[in-house]
Amino acid sequence: KEFRPGDKVVLPPYGVGVVAGIAQRSVSGVSRAYYQVDFPGSRSKAYVPVEAPHSVGLRKAL
């Protein structure tokens, strides 16, 4: 896996977040693995496909 729990990442347009782990989510009846990204200071979460994280701009924070 490219990202691990605890990694600081950037996800446009949300900003800097932390990978909380990998979650299985069902979309249109198909279960897939997603990185769960939490954003400190907020209750917001984002789910990014493990198979294509760069397709939505997910990258490691510098």
Rank of each mutant, 00 (worst) to 15 (best):
Y14F: 11
F3V: 02
P12N: 05
S42R: 12
R43S: 14
A33K: 10
V18F: 11
E51G: 08
V48A: 05
G6M: 04
S31F: 13
G15R: 04
A20I: 13
P53N: 05
V16W: 11
V56L: 07
I22Q: 03
E51H: 07
D7L: 03
Y34H: 04
Y35S: 00
S26L: 14
K8S: 08
A23H: 12
K60I: 09
V10K: 04
R25E: 04
K45E: 06
D38P: 00
G41R: 09
E51R: 05
V30L: 11
V56E: 07
A61V: 14
A52W: 09
A46T: 06
A23G: 05
A33Y: 14
R32I: 09
R4N: 08
Y35C: 02
A52H: 10
K1P: 15
K8M: 13
E2L: 13
S55V: 09
K8I: 15
A46E: 05
F3I: 05
K8W: 15
S31N: 11
A61N: 06
F39W: 02
K1Y: 15
D38H: 11
S31G: 05
Q24M: 14
P40Q: 08
Y35P: 00
D38V: 15
P40G: 11
E2V: 12
V56S: 13
V9Y: 08
G6Q: 02
G41A: 10
S31D: 07
P13Q: 05
V19E: 00
G41S: 10
A46L: 09
Y14V: 02
Q24C: 14
R59Q: 08
E51V: 05
A52P: 04
P49C: 09
K1G: 13
S28F: 10
V27M: 07
G17W: 03
K60R: 09
Y35V: 03
Q36S: 05
S55G: 08
V37R: 00
F3E: 01
F39Y: 02
R43I: 11
P40I: 08
K45M: 11
A23L: 15
E2T: 11
S44L: 14
G21E: 05
K8D: 03
H54M: 08
K60E: 09
P12A: 07
V30C: 09
Y34M: 04
L11K: 01
A33M: 14
R4M: 14
A61E: 08
H54V: 05
G17A: 01
V50I: 09
Y47N: 02
V37Q: 01
V10D: 04
A52D: 15
K45T: 14
K1T: 15
Q36A: 09
G57M: 06
P12R: 06
S44N: 13
V50H: 02
A46P: 02
V10M: 08
A52Y: 09
V27K: 09
R32H: 08
V56M: 11
V50N: 00
V48E: 00
A20E: 07
I22N: 01
L58N: 03
K1D: 13
A33G: 06
S28W: 10
D7Q: 05
V50L: 05
P13C: 13
D38C: 15
F39L: 03
G41M: 09
Y34P: 01
S55H: 08
K45Q: 11
E2F: 11
G15H: 02
Y34W: 05
A52K: 10
Q36C: 10
E51F: 06
